[in-house]
Computed example of a mutant assay.
Amino acid sequence: MMPSLEPSCKEQLEQLKKEFDEFAYIVSHDLKAPVRAVTNLSTWIEEDLGDDLAPDIKHNMDLLRSRASRLERMIEGLLTFSRSTRLELEVGLTDVSALLQEVKQSISPHITLHVPESICNVLTYKAKLREVLTHVLQNAVAFNDKAQPEIVVTLSEQEHMLLFSISDNGIGIPEEALQKVFTLFYTVAPKDSVDTIGTGLAISKKIVHFAGGTIEAAQNPLGGTTISFTWPKNISALPIL
């Protein structure tokens, strides 16, 4: 009987990893280089045209560089999204209260952040939980029109999970867009009017699902948005796919 020529599961996994590494290299090098070249060329052309540049040409050059900058950030966001469940997967005991304060300081020490006085420690992917909290808190600050952004974090213990609910007093999200905000590159406002590329919540959703949890967005009584997600209290390392 002839031996099977079908590749084993291990060989298939190795092939997938190889293809991913090739993809990551293309994204981080081959796609970024021409985008940067466009930015540089537009600057050189503007310099060659001299000081008597017509206002509409100056505007178009600035617009071109702005589009190129956005494209470069989108490429970087795509790379981050693709790597989000492959890197920094060390499992350790994590003080959630300290982690929240750490994330707050890294974003803005001036925001008002309300957290429970006592939060249980979790055995988890600390770097991944930090990444999710960072993206959610960054969104709460970025889309806030108040002089003093206020964020309220509540936690509920379930049998095997923690339920995080993070509410802000920002501008909120329309009802019809609540599910779309977890789509890669989606932004509620026109892309030219916001300084974001729409990757943070998409990355958060991917990480939360990888950890075995769920995530959703809702409107809240503060007038802003509540992002709720579940996270295992005791997690074991999962296979890297």
Rank of each mutant, 00 (worst) to 15 (best):
M2L: 08
E6T: 13
E22R: 04
F23K: 13
S28L: 02
T39V: 03
T43S: 07
T43D: 07
L49W: 02
G50I: 00
L53A: 01
A54R: 12
P55W: 14
P55E: 13
K58N: 13
M61F: 11
L63P: 00
R65N: 14
S66F: 11
L87N: 07
L87E: 08
T94S: 05
L100E: 02
Q101L: 14
Q101P: 00
Q105W: 07
I111T: 03
H114I: 06
H114D: 08
H114Y: 07
P116I: 00
E117T: 02
S118H: 12
C120Q: 15
V122P: 02
T134Y: 09
K146Y: 03
Q148W: 03
P149M: 06
E150A: 10
T154V: 06
E157L: 08
E159S: 08
L162K: 09
F164T: 05
I171Y: 00
G172Y: 04
E175H: 11
A177C: 07
Q179H: 07
K180C: 01
T183D: 10
T183P: 01
T183Q: 15
F185N: 15
F185Q: 08
K191N: 07
V194K: 03
V194P: 01
I197N: 15
G198A: 13
T199A: 12
L201T: 07
I203G: 11
K206M: 05
V208R: 07
H209N: 15
A217C: 14
A218K: 14
N220V: 02
P221G: 06
G224K: 05
W231R: 15
W231A: 13
W231V: 09
S236P: 06
A237C: 14
A237Y: 09
I240D: 07
I240G: 05
